[in-house]
Design a protein around this nucleic acid. Structure first.
Lengths: 236, 236
DNA sequence: TGCGTATTATGAACGAAGTTCACAGCACGA
DNA sequence: TCGTGCTGTGAACTTCGTTCATAATACGCA
């Protein structure tokens, strides 16, 4: 028969078309000006057809975010599985995160918007679940690195669990990028090299956990070498 | 004469009324359902009157955020001027930040929304400037603490400037709160005590900077004592 | 106190965009 | 070939945010 699954394939292709085109429109004209009717028109479909795939505009945005988040999390999993020491892998996660955000400039903004009460609460529960489901494997992978380090005695966990511990580097990454991305923040601060600042603070935090081998915070050459190695072996 | 300045006072009082009422409506019904017409009606004014104060809905939101940010920054300045060591003051900033967010649950969400491209770019430049202007004194005060610590040799700044250094604790604070506040994140992680996790990571970061006197990360009692002292002396 | 003018408040009307739905068109099976 | 059910369509609907012609008010002055 195959007529049913052919139709299914066509539907998926159309959904992809909508998502890809939405991404392009956002890239070209900004999140601000994305309009459902225009998006449908740009894909040569009627508005109603678009609504057969996405329950609302917010739904579409969450779907868009989910797609990129999947890539993001796959990258994390690859980094977590890298054949290197736990300290190096942990730092590599920061570098990878920064790299990913740099490669996808609209992604962080989209995420910021999507996690807003106004958008998040308007999207359908299924869409929200699909997004959060993407996180689980990545969280598990990163937690795995922390657990390995704890077992090997390479880090002082204090009273924190592996998950609580990994929240630290995650927060530094996320917080720093969020702050730097916020307009009126950079102008406030005289940031010479924002990227380097992220890396240094990530290393500082890992040092604070006494995560061995410790990094020499003052050694810029070593930092650059570490970053370059990660970019070469994992991200290129 | 005084008729002009009386009018000025009346205008300011009305603006306050609008802002207070908006705050209440948001608290009671959420950011999602705030409507300009309803806000005006709730204050017994016509819609047009509301628009004499705020150029747009986004403008109103930025004004709302600015008001709270002022309090927030005043708190920071008070903490930065505390008669305690630099390390203790630096940690106190994290505790104060967490405290402020806890006291004003809708503030962080509002901020998150306001800094969104969709809102920020739609507000008038004057409003945006007024918001960012609030930041300057607080940033200066915090940077002052870092500079004092550097001068006294109580911290290893590495190659980072005072401003770059203070971005670390700020990012930890902001990032951690942002992550914990995001729905679907907490469910992902089994967080026993999110507040304590923030504090520990703040201390870890400061330790990583070798900021003296170092904190014993594993010592929960000491951490609690420090937090309690800060809350008692600065925040109560 | 009364009048003319300027300023301000009003809320109905407007406009823009998200969403819906009655209907047309198409494909598939009998 | 015809009937049926499904799908795409886009005009109409709805919901706000925003504006603006008009009414109301306040103010200065004779």
């Amino acid at each position: 028969m195959g007529t049913r699954e052919r139709r299914q394939r066509e539907l998926e292709a159309r959904e992809q078309l909508f998502l890809e085109t939405a991404r392009r429109l956002i890239r070209e004209e900004g999140l601000l000006t994305l309009q459902m009717a225009r998006l449908a028109r740009a894909c040569d479909y009627a508005t109603g057809t678009l609504y057969q795939h996405f329950a609302s505009k917010e739904d579409l945005l969450v779907a868009l975010a989910t797609q990129r988040l999947r890539e993001h999390c796959e990258l994390f999993r690859r980094v977590a599985a890298w054949s290197a020491g736990t300290r190096e892998r942990m730092f590599a996660l920061t570098v990878a995160d920064e790299y990913f955000s740099r490669r996808h400039p609209t992604y962080s903004k989209l995420m910021q918007y999507v996690f807003t009460e106004v958008v998040w609460e308007t999207a359908t529960p299924e869409r929200r679940e699909r997004l959060t489901a993407e996180l689980a494997p990545a969280v598990a992978a990163i937690t795995g690195v922390v657990e390995e380090a704890i077992e090997r005695g390479e880090v002082d966990a204090g009273a924190l669990s592996a998950q609580e511990l990994m929240l630290g580097p995650w927060a530094v990454c996320h917080g720093m990028q969020s702050l730097l991305q916020t307009r009126g923040m950079l102008s406030q601060l005289a940031m010479a090299a924002p990227r380097r600042t992220i890396y240094v603070h990530a290393q500082v935090l890992l040092n604070g956990m006494n995560w061995r081998p410790l990094a020499d915070i003052g050694d810029e050459a070593a930092l650059n070498a570490a970053v370059e190695r990660i970019e070469r072996e994992l991200l290129a």
